[in-house]
Each structure stands twice: as C-alpha cells, then as structure tokens.
Nucleic acid binder design. Structure first.
Lengths: 112, 112
DNA sequence: AGAATAGGTGACCAGATGGTCACATGTCAA
DNA sequence: TTGACATGTGACCATCTGGTCACCTATTCT
C-alpha cells in the first residue's frame, strides 16, 4: 500500500532483472563482471539493471576492494506474498498448486 | 523461469493494477463499474488494466447476465514467492520480517 | 419496442523504459 | 608508477506503456 514498493514491482517487471535474481539465487555474492558474462548484454545494461534492483532493496551489495559483491534479499518478495495471500486461505492455495502440478504431469501444456 | 509469467510481472508493475488487486482482496467478485467508481480514472482505463490482470491470470472473471464479476487469483503470487524464497531459509525471512515490524513500532519511518 | 445500463474496440498521444556508447574514476600488482 | 582491471556517469535513441476518447454491442426493465 505504501507505494514505496513501487520500486520493487518496477524492478521485477523486466525479464533481465528477474534473470539476475535467478543467478544470485543460484549463487550469491557475484560481481558485476561475473553476472555480465552470463547475460548476453553489455556491461552498461547489466549495471543499470543492478542499480534498479539495489534501489528496490531486492539486491544488497558489499564492496570488497575494487569489486562489488551482489546478494539477493528475499524480504521484499515475501512482503508481496503477504499483501495478497491471506494467512487463512494460504493452505487452499498451496493445495491448488499441488493439484496444478499433478494435472500438468498428465496433460502438459493446455492453454486457458 | 518459463517467462509466461512475464505477463504477471508486467501486470503487477502498475500501481493502478495493484490497487485493483487490493480492492478485490478486500471484496471479491466486483464488477467493472464498481471498481471504476473507486479509482479516479475513466472506465476505459480501468477496463484496460483489468484485461491485463486477467491475461496474467491474477484475476479470473465470470459473466452474469450483462455484468462481469472479477475475482482475485492468488496462485501466481504464490509462484513468485516460491521462485526466490528457499524453503530452507523461509523461516529466517519470516524472523527478519518480525524483527522489522518490531523495530518500526519503536522507530516509525526510517529511510534505507 | 425503446430507453437505460453494463461492457467492449481501435486509434491516438505524451511520457517512461531498455539498451548502447564515449568517457571517467578507483584499485590492484608488478 | 604504469598498465590492466572493475566499476561508474551522462547523453542519446527506438520502443513500450498509461490514459483518453468517439463509437459499438449486449442485456435488462418498463
């Protein structure tokens, strides 16, 4: 509600930035150059994306000499979850997801 | 990963659409006209936003006569959560959030 | 049937966004 | 201290996005 989290949602809106979060989820504490090498984009682009992620609080950084290490911060994600998932109905959702996984195992890719 | 969820993140990127989800979270099954009346925007704008939310699967609809009822679907939100919150560290995050709430009760609004 | 009501379409415009580049700063190691 | 490396800044451009409007269709009620 306090649309301070606007930064978080804007940051998550781009596929490149989500990919960066995925890379950090897989291995935390990577540098800009490491992340760039995995992403088929110039260093400048990656830097811009990392800046947005950091301003949104989704990534926290620590300088180590001339390197800057990046870490994934899960807290804002958790807050998104809590905004629209009622504690009371959370169990139902989980059940639905299990059912969905079950169905897709039998009938992979059905549209709408 | 299957950037089909691109629609979900794009849909969540706009404050008006998040406000719509909030309204539906508060009271499910509202019509377009009901939602419009709460939002200081023309009906056309609201309709466009609802369409994106529906295409993203965040809102599901049911026609009833000439009315169209809108319902919040929490499943995609849950999937976002599961993408970056490790089951193993989930407890730590919850603990951090509790701590944060605790701190903000004593020191409301501190930046960064 | 005819009026009122609820929802839908396509085009249009101003402003925001993603990506690149030339150039600049800071740090390490020989 | 010089060169190589890691990161940072400001400007620039093509494209996407939010919002509005004139106009259209479908359903309900009298």
């Amino acid at each position: 509600m306090s649309d301070d989290d606007d930064l978080v949602f804007k940051a998550l809106a781009d596929p490149t930035r989500r990919a960066l979060l995925d890379r950090l989820f897989a291995r935390d504490g990577q540098t800009l150059t490491e992340l760039e090498s995995e992403l088929a984009m110039t260093r400048f682009g990656v830097m811009k994306h990392l800046r947005l992620l950091e301003e949104a609080g989704l990534v926290v950084t620590r300088r180590q000499g001339r390197e800057k290490l990046h870490f994934l911060n899960p807290v804002p994600i958790r807050l998104i979850h809590d905004r629209w998932i009622d504690k009371y109905t959370e169990h139902h959702t989980t059940t639905l997801l299990d059912l969905k996984a079950e169905l897709e195992r039998d009938d992979p890719k059905e549209k709408r």
